[in-house]
Amino acid sequence: MKLEELRKIRERAEADLRLRGGPTRVKIVVGMGTSGIAAGARATLRAILDEVARRNLRDVTVTQTGEKGLAAQEPIVEVHEPERITIYGEVDEALARRIVAEHVVNGRPISERVVAVREVKG
């Protein structure tokens, strides 16, 4: 591993964090069980990480989980916001990028691709 490169990344990223700061606003969870992986969840997860990075979204975290019990609709992507969790099904790379751009950035869920919405009780 190139330690010098890691050090530079750390310096840049920490300076950036100090500049932008702020808590996490949205959490994006990608379902990657066996069926999700077979259905293309790897490309979905990479597309989301890439889109979040490209847009420099510092208040968004991306994580992943195993089987979600919705095998027929995988890859599954959940968008966790303070008031609700929106679940998308059959998320390919293109839809993954749209979810970040339209839902996460502009606050407009892509309703025709939403599988379920769960309200979060405060």
């Binding site: 050090r7 990344i9 750390r10 840049r12 920490e14 990075a53 490209r54």
Partner: peptide, 16 residues
């Protein structure tokens, strides 16, 4: 240990 608070999901870290 080398990255401190910077997450592994940071785009530059992912690429590296």
């Amino acid at each position: 240990e080398h990255l401190g608070e910077v997450p592994l999901a940071h785009p530059d870290v992912l690429r590296l």
